[in-house]
């Protein structure tokens, strides 16, 4: 009997503390055939499990070009993530996926890309950034604005420098006022204000904005003033999910099941959905 709820087993090959409460994990399919058969598109998510504790939903934050392993990143906030916090190299976890839709990277070709992320929302942007950098010639200028409450809350800090070294890539780091350290060389301020101050040219651009609701709320008017249309502004919703298969009934916003028709939406699409997210 085909069991749609049964996960594949994965072996953790690296578990790294990104901040005091955020970890990133690299994992590889235990079954080589499952690994060979697996493919996904950046923006899709997986349901990851710690056996004995349960399942949690995270974006697959590695690039879809990386065939050797996948990565995910999480904040320690509950029963499952506290159990995942304890895993280490060699441990076995469960994975179901990939689920959901993805960033339309082909449609973005030839355009300038603006990535705006806040806090723990960098991982679901990171997969698209790496994908764009690995296919650099297909995209225009790349701007990345990444902010967190404090310097200690920034994730994938080591990669920010790698991205900034790429041709035609501008990386702007910021922390909330009071979150800076004495040696901080980035900006101080909230993502929407720092982004507006940066004066990024908006012509022929698409924006991917992921972060806490308050960040998105204040970022949208900035993008609007820059002349970026709602259908060119993308986000990824974080509705709570259990099955990921359009059955368990909790992630919907109106008739849209976020696990099936999402999690990636344009602001134009969101404006037509009930505000149940």
């Amino acid at each position: 009997m085909r069991n749609i709820y049964r996960p594949e087993l994965m072996q953790v090959i690296d578990a790294r503390r990104q901040t005091p409460d955020v970890k990133s994990v690299r994992a590889r399919f235990l079954d080589p055939a499952a690994g060979r058969d697996f493919s996904f598109r950046v923006g899709q998510f997986g349901i990851f499990s710690a056996f004995g504790y349960g399942e949690s939903t995270f974006n697959i934050c590695s690039s879809s070009n990386w065939r050797d392993h996948i990565e995910f990143c999480f904040r320690k906030t509950g029963r499952v993530t506290e159990a995942l916090w304890e895993i280490d190299e060699g441990d076995t976890i469960g994975f179901r996926g990939p689920y959901g839709n993805w960033y339309p990277m082909e449609e973005w070709e030839g355009k300038n890309l603006i990535f705006l992320g806040g806090g723990i929302a960098m991982p679901p942007i990171r997969c698209a950034i790496w994908y764009a950098l690995e296919n650099r010639e297909r995209f225009g200028e790349i701007t990345i604005v990444y902010g967190a409450r404090t310097v200690a809350d920034l994730v994938y800090v080591d990669e920010l420098d790698k991205w900034a070294a790429g041709p035609g890539v501008r990386v702007i780091r910021c922390v909330d006022p009071g979150g800076e350290t004495p040696g901080w060389t980035g900006e101080i301020g909230f993502v929407p204000m720092v982004f507006e101050r940066a004066g990024v040219p908006a012509g022929n651009s698409v924006a991917l904005v992921i972060g806490p609701p308050v960040m998105i709320k204040y970022t949208l008017p900035v993008l609007d003033r820059m002349g970026i249309a709602p259908q060119d502004i993308y986000t990824s919703l974080e509705n709570r999910m259990k099955c990921g298969l359009g059955k368990c009934g909790r992630c919907n916003a109106g008739e849209c099941y976020v696990c099936k028709e999402g999690p990636v939406f344009t602001m134009e699409q969101l404006s037509r959905l009930p505000t149940d997210y």
Partner: peptide, 30 residues
């Protein structure tokens, strides 16, 4: 429905249990 683990770190089961949209935890984000 909900999907939960019942057991401990040594062994157990993953199960599908009835749930309801009337419960406050049903859609609570992390």
């Amino acid at each position: 429905f909900d999907i939960v683990d019942e057991g401990n770190a040594a062994g157990g089961m993953r199960a599908k249990n009835w749930d309801s949209c009337q419960f406050s935890l049903f859609t609570l984000h992390a």
